[in-house]
């Protein structure tokens, strides 16, 4: 395949996301812009300009609104189709947004923040999206607080009953959405958890960590099912939706990362581990890898149909890979 190279951004591309229908994808960068693209054929639809570096973003299921979390300037909400700014939620400069994500049904979204005041806590807030759009002061409730070890990534569980949160030291917490009660806590990693993702049917949870391991967990018990040793710090791991393909399911997961940006100058490009690796989840075996980036890969997103994926990297580019027809043959099972 010949990937499509997107070099619209001037600074590292930190987040990449598809919408639910898969006809649009979004790339967010530290240069303060989020770009929207049509996925087939790849063409830029527009940009959303925020103040400050974009850290994370999330799109509603009907692709009408996008919520963008920036490092210290708060949350920005745009209309996807026209690019008009709908709302800005501003915080004091001591609140750092770590992650935002919409729940199933797009009625509410959570925000993981780190507050660098005296308490130095990390707090998970849940926003009611309707009130965010209509009211001056949006209604929110704080669900969990944690000091010492801070939450870094999160994901909504099945039917919005739980939120799975990953901390900076490698602990996974499962929290009840209504009461904020800690249901499960498990040490899965030695270092920071950089990515958490469910499989499309919510039967498996995949984590990626800077301790060079990606793990497949049972979401009910947080028991380790499979362990993938990638031998480089990981930034992102996703499960391919082809696992739900009728007839010829492919139980594949995509794992990407690479050495930290500050170590890159001291090593050769081929040693950095900037490739995107495909693993077979059943046999715990590496299928192959796709090379191309020359900086650590921050984020991987797979099209809901599974035939293409987008990666964003520290080198300032995003790449769109449309998989060849051979990938769908049994040779790559």
């Amino acid at each position: 395949m010949r990937p499509i190279l997107i070099s619209c951004h001037t600074r590292p591309v930190i987040a990449v996301k598809f919408n639910k229908d898969g006809d649009l994808f979004f790339t967010g960068s530290f240069d303060g812009k989020v770009s929207v693209f049509w996925s087939e054929p790849v063409e830029r639809l527009g940009t959303f300009a925020c103040d400050g570096a974009v850290k994370t973003m999330t799109v509603t299921e009907d692709s009408k609104y996008i919520v963008i979390g920036t490092a210290i300037n708060g949350i920005f909400i745009f209309e996807v189709e026209t690019g008009t700014k709908v709302k800005t939620i501003e915080f004091s400069s001591k609140i750092h947004v770590r992650d935002v994500e919409f729940a199933m049904g797009s009625q509410q979204f959570f925000m993981i923040s780190y507050e660098s005041d005296e308490k130095k806590q990390s707090v998970v807030y849940i926003y009611d999206f309707e009130s965010v759009l209509n009211r001056e002061q949006p209604s929110r409730r704080d669900l969990v607080r944690r000091d010492r070890d801070h939450y870094y990534r999160g994901v909504w569980g099945y039917l919005n009953k739980t939120i799975v949160l990953g901390t900076q030291n490698g602990i996974i917490d499962v929290v009840d959405t209504k009461t904020g009660e800690l249901l499960l806590s498990h040490r899965a990693h030695v270092n920071q958890i950089t990515s958490l993702a469910f499989s499309p049917d919510f039967s498996m949870l995949i984590t990626a960590s800077r301790d060079c391991f990606a793990k497949l967990l049972d979401p009910e018990t947080l028991k380790e099912i499979r362990v993938f040793n990638a031998q480089r710090p990981l930034n992102s791991a996703v499960i391919s939706p082809l696992m739900l393909n009728e007839g010829s399911p492919k139980y594949h997961c995509l794992v990407a990362g690479g050495q930290e940006a500050r170590d890159v100058t001291t090593t050769a490009t081929d040693q950095g581990g900037f490739e995107i690796t495909f693993y077979n989840m059943i046999f715990e075996r590496e299928i192959g890898s796709v090379r191309g980036h020359f900086g650590p890969v921050h984020s991987v997103a797979v099209h809901p149909r599974g035939h293409m994926f987008v990666t964003g990297s520290e080198d300032g580019t995003a790449r769109v890979h449309i998989l060849d027809q051979d990938y769908f043959t049994p040779a790559y099972d």
Binding site: R2, I6, V290
Partner: peptide, 16 residues
């Protein structure tokens, strides 16, 4: 736009 290009080199899912 000029910033969206198709890569010159072919990339494969290499079995390693």
């Amino acid at each position: 736009e000029g910033s969206i290009n198709i890569e010159d080199k072919e990339v494969f899912l290499q079995k390693s």
